[in-house]
Design a protein around this nucleic acid. Structure first.
Length: 428
DNA sequence: TCTGGGGTCCTATTTCTG
DNA sequence: TCTGCAGAAATAGGACCC
């Protein structure tokens, strides 16, 4: 567990070991020199992030199985769990009921993401002290381009160790870091020695590092793709690398070509600094009923609540959208989506609800019990350029509603999301 | 028997438009 | 006015990620 690992030529007793291609007589890969002019890309992945934060906040939870997710009696699943819980066979995405059965004495935590977002931001701040090129890719991981700065700290390994140490000392959290000549290799490396690991893969050791690993270690190859590849005898990344592009293109289209390239150690090296504005392409909310239902009032009540949540986020981010998608999961777990594209951009709860309700009614979704419904809006644009100023829209029949939304937004900003809500949205 | 919620991207098919 | 065509846009579904 943990420690520094570099892929090497098998030289015995070298600690830390270093990944290399077996070339004799050259400098160890730990030295900065081996990277030459190659990019040095770091991927940092926090260990059991949410659970570790809970353990950090409440020291009494240290060493105990901690499971973060929904209510253990609900239909929720495990969001993440501590390594102690993983010893019981518990893992992310496992139904909470199953997790509870495996470890009834675990500490179950069901909290909001605010503190997790805060800690995530702190991690990014620490990384930026070392390099400005930090690109968060989710709440618990980020890429960092250290090509230009690693020499200042004595090479990639020492840079990574300094970052790990800062996170440990300042946030009391551990992370795993992978370093490689591109994003794909760095990402696989960071996941290969968790928790608290550090794996460094210089450019000349990439194939040795990758080819022995199962094919689903490649980013973008999930369960289905791994199954499909397995059926034609492709089990490892090495198998994938040696497969003709033609075969993979026939199986996966243009994605197949990308897979071969990744298997051969090629990949993106661009790290987009986080100050570059991120623009969401869609926003949505969904909810699973405690019990499947086609009770009209309950379903419409939830639909109104979801439309309200979506419209609130649109206004918070200053966006409007044009396509409303209704998502329905039936009792048999089958997922159906229906979308409608409107002639104008919208952002009010009433407009979103009206479109979603039309999709619900027109498609006769209330004819049988529903497990989940979701409301999503896409074709997003910044609202300033799309909407007329308030003084120009006196004739707009939705203006009063928008004013009401503004008042509600203000109350929620001040007193929290539950401060005010539509009565009809609370019956689900 | 159980399977959340919030996203992105890709593909195939259908519909619209010039 | 009708038809055929091509490209764009919309739609639906699936896979994947955390």
């Amino acid at each position: 567990m943990g420690g520094v690992k570099e892929i090497n030529d098998g030289t015995r007793g070298r600690v830390p070991s270093t990944i290399s291609d077996g070339t004799r007589g050259r400098a160890p890969s730990t030295s900065e020199g081996v990277w030459g002019n190659y990019p040095v890309i770091m991927h940092l992945d926090m260990d059991a992030f949410f659970a570790a934060i809970e353990q950090s906040i409440q020291p009494s939870l240290k060493g105990k199985p901690v499971i973060v997710g929904g209510d253990p009696d609900s239909r929720g699943v495990v969001s993440t769990c501590s390594y102690e819980a993983r010893n019981y066979g518990i893992h992310s995405a496992m139904p909470m009921k199953e997790a509870h059965r495996l470890c009834p004495d675990a500490v179950f935590v069901n909290t909001t993401g605010d503190k997790y977002s805060y800690m995530s931001a702190q991690v990014v701040i620490i990384m930026k002290r070392f390099s400005p090129a930090v690109e968060p890719v989710s709440i618990d991981e980020a890429f960092c381009d250290i090509t230009a700065i690693h020499k200042r700290y004595g090479g990639p390994e020492k840079t990574a160790q300094a970052i790990k140490q800062a996170i440990k000392e300042e946030l009391n959290l551990t992370c795993s870091i992978g370093i490689g000549p591109n994003r794909s290799v760095a990402k696989i490396a960071s996941g290969s020695n968790k928790p608290d690991g550090l794996v460094i893969v210089p450019h000349d050791s990439v194939k040795q590092f990758l080819w022995v690993r199962p094919v689903d270690h490649i980013w973008g190859v999930g369960k289905k793709s791994a199954e499909a590849l397995g059926k034609v005898g492709i089990k490892t990344i090495g198998d994938l690398a040696k497969t003709p592009e033609k075969t993979l293109k026939a199986m996966f289209g243009i994605m197949g070509l990308g897979l071969v390239r990744m298997a051969n150690g090629e990949g993106e090296t661009d790290v987009r600094a986080s100050h570059v504005e991120y623009e969401a392409k869609s926003m949505g909310h969904e909810h699973t009923f405690d019990k499947d239902t086609n009770d009209r009032e309950r379903v419409l009540g939830l639909l109104l609540y979801l439309a309200d949540r979506v419209s609130r986020r649109l206004r918070q981010t200053g966006c409007v959208g044009r396509t409303v998608t209704l998502k329905v999961r039936k009792s048999n777990f089958k997922l159906i989506t229906r979308a409608i594209t409107l002639s104008a951009n919208i952002d009010t709860e009433k407009e979103i609800f009206r479109a979603a309700r039309k999709l619900l009614i027109d498609n006769r979704f209330l004819d049988e019990p529903i497990r989940l419904i979701g409301v999503n809006i896409s074709h997003l644009k910044k609202s300033e350029s799309e909407r007329l100023d308030d003084f120009l829209i006196d004739y707009d029949p939705t203006k009063k509603r928008r004013e009401l939304d503004k008042v509600m937004d203000g109350l929620r900003d001040k007193h929290g999301e539950e401060a005010i809500f539509f009565a009809s949205s609370q019956i689900f």
